[in-house]
Measured scan of single mutants.
Amino acid sequence: MLDDRARMEAAKKEKVEQILAEFQLQEEDLKKVMRRMQKEMDRGLRLETHEEASVKMLPTYVRSTPEGSEVGDFLSLDLGGTNFRVMLVKVGEGEEGQWSVKTKHQMYSIPEDAMTGTAEMLFDYISECISDFLDKHQMKHKKLPLGFTFSFPVRHEDIDKGILLNWTKGFKASGAEGNNVVGLLRDAIKRRGDFEMDVVAMVNDTVATMISCYYEDHQCEVGMIVGTGCNACYMEEMQNVELVEGDEGRMCVNTEWGAFGDSGELDEFLLEYDRLVDESSANPGQQLYEKLIGGKYMGELVRLVLLRLVDENLLFHGEASEQLRTRGAFETRFVSQVESDTGDRKQIYNILSTLGLRPSTTDCDIVRRACESVSTRAAHMCSAGLAGVINRMRESRSEDVMRITVGVDGSVYKLHPSFKERFHASVRRLTPSCEITFIESEEGSGRGAALVSAVACKKACMLGQ
């Protein structure tokens, strides 16, 4: 009897593995994704193909990295998701002549009506938060230079001027797309009239992360975010950046690689679950690469896999709870928690219980395998993109072996128990001629924006502006 049951459990697990095998990517698959990513990057950089390229390769006008001589107080704003952060950054000489960066910050959550109302409502709310922060720190009387981390696709015309191309991540505030974001912020500050600010720089969160990590390690020339969304930036040779005049030196390019796949480059790798996630998203047909990796989508992918296993009578005796059938019910943090389970399955059992399920031991094991399959594919897909960037940098610099540091931020990278190990191992397999160091950014977005502002202020002083 026991043997029969054991055989049935083994057969069930084997069927589960057959279904989950769809998520496995072979090294040849990853090399294919990497080569296609490089081709799209090239198209994004070139003037004649930029418009139709899915990977936009947006110039950021960040050319210099901090040298350690900029000092002063800077205000930093960070808008990239449902939370908005205001930070005071003091850049100065530390002990023994070292450079020191001290920060104080406060988080504000953005109400739904500000995210989806008008641009005026959104930026009025942001300036209200700045006003509140300055009151708390008794700094209303000071006109501070301000660095703005704005983590949406922007076409820069200068370091302090950028046109919002399109909202992502659930934002829909009308009247912002096609307009200068810094102008919208300046107008809102003017409307309030109770404080003055000098907006000197606007950067993407990947750029802010790279600059913040450069402060720790001067070989950091790539910034990457794996959180709600997924994106990367890197220092490109100016001669390859056709959208900006000049051939000397390097400029940081914001790849906006989340949109890779929007022209069909990933079609052969998309599964039924991916198509369902895409169809029910706020932007169907867009940001397809990001939807395979980002935390906004990972939990939902797992939920759809679990429903398939229920329908195949391989999980929960073929019956799903009402909660499990509800879109968004299986949160991405559950994926991390399930994979963090120590082996007694308590954590998995508790999560499934909150979803109205009474799982068996085998159910718990199957749910864990589903989570591992989805998150491992995410790590491997992400590795193909980064390997594409790094191999490109090595080739354009004609280096036999390139040493490089990548600064990384984002909740999936930082909080998932195995993502970074799987990701690092896969990147290294795909970049055999590179020695890569990964560092995690601390308060990256805010500190990085302030350091970019410090560079901009120093330049302005040198130019006598």
Rank of each mutant, 00 (worst) to 15 (best):
S373A: 06
N180L: 13
M210Q: 09
E196M: 05
C364Q: 02
R85K: 06
V277W: 07
R5F: 12
K346V: 13
G92I: 07
E112T: 07
R46L: 14
H137G: 05
E95N: 08
K15V: 15
S340C: 04
R303C: 04
K32L: 05
G147R: 05
R7F: 14
V154R: 09
E9D: 10
L314I: 14
C252L: 04
G72A: 01
K459I: 05
N313P: 01
L45M: 03
I159K: 08
E339L: 01
G446T: 15
Q18H: 15
I189R: 05
P284I: 15
L315V: 10
K104W: 07
R392G: 08
I19M: 03
K458L: 14
M41Q: 12
S396E: 15
F84A: 08
F123T: 09
E242N: 01
E93W: 10
N179P: 14
V16G: 09
G410R: 06
S100P: 07
A384F: 10
L77D: 00
R303A: 03
H141D: 02
L184C: 08
I110H: 06
D198K: 01
V207N: 01
S398F: 05
D160W: 02
V277Q: 13
F316I: 11
A176W: 13
E112K: 15
N179A: 13
K31T: 13
K291H: 09
R392D: 01
A387F: 01
V452G: 09
D29E: 08
T255S: 12
T118H: 13
S54I: 10
S69T: 08
Y413W: 10
T49V: 06
R327C: 12
G183W: 02
M87E: 04
E395I: 09
E245K: 00
V412W: 06
V55C: 09
D132C: 06
D205R: 06
Q106S: 09
G258D: 15
C434Y: 10
A320D: 12
C230A: 14
V338I: 02
D344Y: 08
G285W: 06
M139H: 09
E52L: 14
D113C: 12
Q239I: 04
G343L: 02
K12R: 13
V241P: 00
T326V: 14
V203F: 04
D365N: 03
F23R: 07
N313M: 06
H317Q: 14
E236P: 00
K104S: 13
I348V: 04
A173V: 04
S64E: 14
D262P: 08
A10I: 15
I225N: 02
V89T: 06
A10F: 15
N391F: 05
A21R: 13
E245R: 00
T354Y: 09
H137F: 09
L292E: 07
I189G: 04
S336L: 07
A384H: 01
D365L: 07
V33E: 03
G285Q: 05
A188I: 02
R5L: 15
E331R: 14
R392H: 13
L79V: 09
V55W: 06
R7H: 15
G227C: 08
L309N: 04
S100N: 12
G328Y: 11
S69A: 14
L463P: 07
W257K: 01
K414C: 14
V226Y: 03
S321K: 13
K39T: 10
K458I: 12
Y297N: 05
V222E: 00
G299A: 07
G117M: 07
G80F: 12
M57D: 00
F316E: 13
T118Q: 10
P153R: 10
T65Q: 10
L355F: 05
V207C: 06
S174L: 04
A370V: 05
K169I: 11
V367W: 01
G464A: 11
D135P: 03
A370F: 02
V338W: 00
I225E: 03
S76C: 04
L134D: 04
M41Y: 13
K15G: 13
M210F: 09
V310G: 05
A460C: 07
M381K: 01
C457A: 14
H317L: 13
K39I: 14
F438Y: 05
K161E: 09
A449Y: 06
S373M: 10
P145T: 04
F123L: 05
S396N: 15
P153D: 14
F123R: 02
L415W: 05
R327W: 10
L276S: 09
V91P: 03
G249D: 01
R333L: 15
T60C: 09
C461S: 15
Q286H: 12
R63G: 00
G94E: 03
T405D: 01
V33G: 02
S426G: 10
Q106W: 05
K161P: 15
E51G: 09
E52D: 07
N240Q: 05
T437R: 11
L184S: 11
F171S: 09
E242T: 07
L79R: 10
K169A: 12
C233Y: 00
L2P: 13
E440G: 06
N166A: 13
H50C: 05
V401R: 07
V335I: 09
N240C: 08
T326E: 06
A454P: 08
I436E: 04
A456M: 09
E157R: 12
G448F: 12
E95T: 06
L314R: 03
Q323P: 07
G261N: 06
E421S: 14
C252Q: 00
I436R: 00
H380V: 14
S174D: 09
F171W: 11
S383R: 00
A10N: 15
R303G: 01
A201E: 00
V241W: 02
R377W: 00
G227A: 07
A188V: 01
T405I: 02
A173K: 03
L314M: 08
F74P: 00
E237R: 05
K102E: 13
A232V: 08
V33D: 00
T362I: 04
G407T: 06
G264S: 13
E51S: 14
V86W: 01
P432W: 15
N180C: 08
L88W: 04
G388Q: 10
G183E: 04
A114P: 07
I366E: 04
E93N: 11
V338H: 00
Y215G: 00
L292W: 14
M37R: 00
E248P: 03
R186D: 05
K102A: 08
V427E: 00
C233V: 01
P417D: 13
P66S: 07
N283V: 05
K420H: 09
R303L: 04
G80A: 08
V200M: 05
S127V: 11
P284V: 12
S398M: 04
T362Y: 09
G229Q: 15
G410W: 09
F195N: 01
G249I: 01
A259R: 10
S453R: 12
N83I: 15
E245N: 06
L77C: 08
A208V: 04
S336F: 14
D160A: 13
V200A: 03
N240F: 05
Q219G: 15
G229N: 15
K39S: 05
